[in-house]
Amino acid sequence: MRAEALKGHLDGLLLAALEDGPRHGYAVKEALRDTTGGKFDLPTGTVYPALHRLEQAGLISGSWSVVGGRRRRTYELTDEGRRSLAGARDHWQEFAAAISTALGGSPWPATN
């Protein structure tokens, strides 16, 4: 799947990839690829600027460690990031349900 298809959803996907615990950039990219069955296989280099953007926004925090003689930056969700992920999930489910209904031609789900 092309990277353009992810526009508007990349932040939520990256946050979801960090939900289970801290990961470094390459591991985030691999997690995203694995959880989508290889459909979202972003160029590794493009994941890092996106992670920096999320860090600037306060949604994730990064810390340095040394692994195998190399310096490695690992990211984890902040409380604000968890709230943002929950919001992204709610928004997506609402959006996907509406699109599925419209494309499927079935009636809109009943609302209370």
Binding site: T44, V47, Y48, R72, R73
Partner: peptide, 13 residues
């Protein structure tokens, strides 16, 4: 610092 992070990712890849 950015290059160090990218180097780790590229080398791991």
């Amino acid at each position: 610092s950015v290059v160090e992070e990218l180097a780790d990712g590229l080398t791991t890849s």
